[in-house]
Every structure is written in structure tokens, then in C-alpha cells.
Design a protein around this nucleic acid. Structure first.
Lengths: 334, 334
DNA sequence: ATTGTTCACGTGAACGTTCACATCGCGGTA
DNA sequence: TACCGCGATGTGAACGTTCACGTGAACAAT
């Protein structure tokens, strides 16, 4: 920087002003400085700036990295993309840390925590909640994106409304016995279950008993759960899996056992991953608008970092029901 | 740091030694320093370290971000994951920049270039080659991952061998007329085409003429290309699409037009994306081992950064043929 | 007893920015 | 003429590390 200053015949401070686009520099001087910068291939050093300003202009993002669990992939990538465009708009960078599931959630964010190289943290809920209290106490601004969370500001899709829309859609088609394939925990699928039940209630229909089977969000678990549900004395006429992966599994079970979709049984998923549109028949699902989720989370984080008006503890973004060919009126209806 | 030093009754330099795990510190002193660090919640500042060492211990990674092109997603995510585990192992961080396709490839890496906040760059080939010469000249160590590239060290899968394996597999099953659906450019599919042709040559079979149709790696283009190929006077008995997305499109065309897969027509894809295992029937494809690709690229970048023995200009990693249910002997064979 | 060697630790400078403040012209006003 | 105000620019310190030394004590070898 001092070299540039010397070349342009000004002081280092003037160079700084030019670099930061501050006012109070004559056009002539600015041009001379810019020319010197170019000819010396000068690039300002982020380190020194961070040192004196106490800000790195980088935020960390922690995402799970599970090679086996391939379903959430495009959700994740969109989340990252959305957050990054928002960050880029403000000149921030994104330091990404992928975390092997089960590899100790703490380690992933400790990576940033250790040396102060981020101004804040974006955490995808899939990384596991165990490290979050620790994290919240560390003093970093943190936003959780994915599930609802009570200690830390979070932004997540409106699971309840999304599930409500699916069940409402199926009820409107004429289905009365809708089987559900839930997630492994109440945290992961509680809201979706509530939405499902509320749709029944609002339609003044009695919720059929014993038409719920737990899964773990994998294709195989959806396959197994569909088998159990369809073996009931009064099998359901529609299956609502709480994510697309399990819906694909259900689709497979039905095909292998001679049930036509949607002729015999309708199937709906959740998340609207890329695979939803690719399987046969294309899957009715709920889009979570991952890009918006990521973008919103980044905005929230900026509010936290800049200590603007205290941001809401919880931000809920609506999903959108995407009706495809896997749902239709039940056989013999109308 | 000086506060910690005072609290522990030592000099700042001793604290530095403890932080960096350097030798020459008594166990007693070390414990005292560590205790002081903990009680003061001290975390070393990466900025200052980067300032004096001239290294940020962060590398940038540039990936394309195309919401519509959902197929490469899990490839991309695995690439990122692989690179990140390698980086993490050496204490490095990954600064990610997602780039909207067509949004000016230059802008994505300029983000790092502008302020010197990375030690090197990992560039996914999908971001487009236009910015690379510029990039190579910028003085950063750069590794391109994905396609082969002549100006910059690169690591990419062995497309030719992968395609060779697919065609060899189909020929061994008894197919003679194998239709191919290629990518939009020679850059993207030249090697795969060569592998395909070499497999014919090695099997001493004549390559059937006019059984190649271009696509653009989207599902729809695969659908259209399959339609064109199957409308030939002598239609192929097997389709080899140069990525999974187009293979899925082909699958759809065949289903809609009453051809059984693999009964009437076999279908093979390329890349072994998550969707390959999900569609019906599951798709024979070629796994690129994206995680290894990412890891290898990171290793190469470290060689460049540390100026170790000059790394190879081109690193080729073999793919693996994954045979699933979409390929079988042609009707009436054996 | 002297010298040398090793080890633990301290000292001051340097890295490349920004911040707070000082200075220099210059035009206008009393 | 003397003074004020203001906009453009310069000055020195500070940020929190690491680096290249310097120092002193303990101990061994002569």
C-alpha cells in the first residue's frame, strides 16, 4: 500500500480512501492512485483490514455432509446458493464447513470458533442440535436454518402449513384413509403431523386410527413403511410420506406389489427435491423454497451482526404444494 | 493476547508458542497459559496471523449454481465435501463462491482476488472456461476440477475409460446397435465418445452409423433425443446417454411409448448421481467418485501452495461402472 | 574456575490496514 | 488585513500476531 502511495505521490491514507471509495478525494488524485494500483497489481489485504476493524466480513456456514443420505442434496445446495447470493451482495464471503453426520457436531463449528475468522454463523439444522447451546454461548451471532429451535434465532419452512396443504389436497380428491410415513423424531415431523391432523379436523372428517408408520427419511424406510401400511386390514388409499425419499421408497413398494400409482394408491412426498420430478409418476410434494430460506437466514444474520433492531426469534417461510401425477381421486370416486 | 500473557505471568511470545503447540515451553507454564486462555475466553485472531505470515490458510472454491440444472447436485456436494475434508485435515478453511451460470464467470473468483483472502483456488469446470486464462495469470495457485484443461493443473474423471466400460458392458450383453446421446460440446463429451468408439473397435465390431444424437445434459433433451433415435428405420436396442439426466429423459420417453426397460431397450447413464438409483428401473451408470475428485484436487492445490515438487498438469481418476437393472441382454438374445 | 551448550523465556520490530487527528490551502467574510 | 470555515490530504498510532533475535539459568565438559 505504501508502495502504491509512493508511486502515486500521495499518502497511504489517500490510497485507503480510494480503495474504500470514500469521499474527499479529487478526481485527479483518484485516477492517479487507481493507475498506480493497476500497474503494481496491488490488491488490498483482507487480513490487515480485519485486524483493525475487528470484522472479517466472512460468515461461516455449517452443513451436514452425509454421503449416504443423498436426498436433501439439492435442498442443501440451494440453501447455500441462496445464502451466498445474499452474502455476496454485501461483500461478504462464506466459509463453508461440511460435517460428517455423527462426527461430533461441535468440531465443525469449532473450526471457525478457534480462530476468530467469521463474523457470524449459519447452521443447517441437520448438523444436530447437540452443539447449539455451546454455540449460542460462544458469543457469535448464530442463525439456525431448517428446524425450529428455541435457544437460537432460526428460519425454517412452515412444515405444518405444508402438510396441511397436502392432506387438504388428498381429502379434496376424495381420499378418506390417508396413511402417513413420519420421520424418526417428534422434532423432525411433529409439525407435519399436526398439519395433517388439522386438515382432517377442518374438513370435519374423523382421523382414521392406526394409519401412521415411522420412517427415518431414507428410501428403504419408506419402502418398509409402505409395506406395513398396505398390509393393514383396511389399507389406505393414499400415502403421505414426510419426505420425498420415503415417498420414492413407497412408490417402489407399490410398483413391486402391483399397485398402480395413482390409479390404486395416491402418493405424496415432502421437500420437493429434484428427484420428485424425475420418478415415475412424478411426485406431488411440497416445495420448501430452499433458496429463499438461505437468503432469509443470511439477512437475519446480518441483522444480528449489525445489531440492528432485534430480529425475530423465529422466522417461518411458507411452502408451496406442487401437484404432480402421483395423486388422483381414489378408485371408484365420482 | 497480551492480557492472557499478563494473567499467566509470561510474555506474549510464550502465549504464541502455546497457541501454536511449539516446543520449548515447560509443562507448568503451558498449563498456566492454557488456564488463562480458558478463563479469559481467548481465541487467537486469524487476521493478525494472516497479516504477518502472508498466508490466510483459506482456499477459495468456485462452483456453478444453476437452480434449473439439478442433476449435478450431488456430484457437486460430494466434490465440496471431499475437498473440505482434505482442507480441514490441514487446518484450512474453504471460502465458497457459488456462481449463477452465465452470470460472468469472472465475477465469482474476483470476489477472492480483490482482497487477498485465499491462498489458492479450486474451480469446478462447470463455471465456464472463459475466466480461466485471466485467473491463471492472476498469480494464484489454481486447480480445475471436472474437465480437462490445458492452461491450469486439473483433476478430472477418466471419461474415456468410463464410457469404454459402459459400451463394453452393453456389447458383452449382446447389443450391437447402441445409440448414444451426447453432450452439447466436444469439450463435454469428446472423451466419452472416444471411449464408446474404442470399445467397438476393441470388440472388432463395426460402429453403426447414424446412431448419435446431441443433447444438452437436461432431462428434456434426453427425452427428445431418445425419441429421435427410436424413430430410426433400424432403432437401437440400447441407449447410452452421456449423463444420468438425459438417461432419465430417455427412460421417460421409452415408458410413454410402451417400450419396456430393459426388456425391449437397455439404458445406461453416466455420473451415477443420486437419481440413478432411484428411478425405475435403477440406472446402470458410471460413478465418478466425486469425493475422491474433490480430495485429490485439494491435495494438488496444497502441492501448488507449498511449492512442493511441481504437480502433474493433469490428474485422471478412474470411474467405476455400476451395473443396475436398466441394462440386460437384447430381446431374443441367447 | 572457566567455558560452552542447551533450554526456557523475553524483547522489540514488523506485517498492512484504518482511525483519530493535524495540517495545508483557499475562498469568503468581518 | 485578519480571521473563519471547509475540503483535500498527510501523520502517527494502533490492531494482534509472528519473527529474529537476545538473555539468563542450569548443567556438563574441560
Amino acid at each position: 500500500m505504501r508502495t502504491v502511495a509512493a508511486a502515486a505521490g500521495v499518502s497511504h491514507q489517500t490510497v485507503s480512501r480510494v480503495v474504500n471509495g470514500e469521499p474527499g478525494v479529487t478526481d485527479g488524485t483518484r485516477d492517479r492512485v487507481l493507475a498506480a494500483m493497476r500497474s503494481l497489481a496491488y490488491r488490498p489485504g483482507a487480513g490487515a483490514r480485519a485486524l483493525v476493524r475487528g470484522r472479517t466480513e466472512v460468515v461461516g456456514m455449517v452443513v451436514p455432509h452425509d454421503p449416504g443420505f443423498t436426498f436433501a442434496n439439492d435442498h442443501l445446495l440451494r440453501l447455500i446458493g441462496g445464502a451466498d447470493t445474499e452474502l455476496a451482495a454485501r461483500g461478504y464471503g462464506m466459509l463453508l464447513s461440511t460435517r460428517e453426520t455423527g462426527g461430533g457436531a461441535a468440531s465443525a463449528y469449532r473450526r471457525f470458533d478457534r480462530r476468530r475468522l467469521v463474523d457470524g454463523l449459519l447452521v443447517e439444522a441437520g448438523v444436530g442440535a447437540d452443539a447449539l447451546p455451546d454455540l449460542a454461548a460462544s458469543g457469535y451471532p448464530v442463525v439456525v436454518v431448517g428446524y425450529t429451535h428455541q435457544d437460537v434465532p432460526c428460519v425454517h419452512p412452515d412444515d405444518e402449513a405444508g402438510a396441511y396443504a397436502v392432506t387438504q389436497h388428498l381429502l379434496a380428491l376424495g381420499h378418506r384413509r390417508i396413511g402417513t410415513v413420519t420421520g424418526p423424531s417428534a422434532l423432525a415431523s411433529g409439525a407435519r403431523l399436526r398439519g395433517h391432523e388439522r386438515a382432517y379436523a377442518d374438513a370435519r372428517r374423523r382421523l382414521p386410527a392406526d394409519l401412521t408408520e415411522p420412517g427415518d427419511f431414507t428410501v428403504d424406510s419408506g419402502y418398509a413403511a409402505a409395506g406395513r401400511l398396505m398390509s393393514r386390514r383396511h389399507p389406505p388409499t393414499a400415502l403421505f410420506a414426510f419426505n420425498d425419499g420415503m415417498a420414492v421408497g413407497a412408490l417402489r413398494w407399490l410398483r413391486e406389489h402391483g399397485r398402480a400409482v395413482p390409479g390404486d394408491v395416491s402418493v405424496a412426498g415432502f421437500d420437493d427435491t429434484a428427484a420428485a420430478g424425475l420418478v415415475d409418476p412424478p411426485l406431488t410434494s411440497v416445495s420448501l423454497h430452499s433458496t429463499d430460506l438461505g437468503r432469509r437466514a443470511a439477512q437475519l444474520l446480518f441483522d444480528l451482526i449489525d445489531e440492528r433492531a432485534d430480529p425475530p426469534r423465529e422466522t417461518v417461510l411458507p411452502g408451496t404444494l406442487v401437484v404432480r401425477a402421483s395423486t388422483a381421486p381414489p378408485r371408484g370416486h365420482r
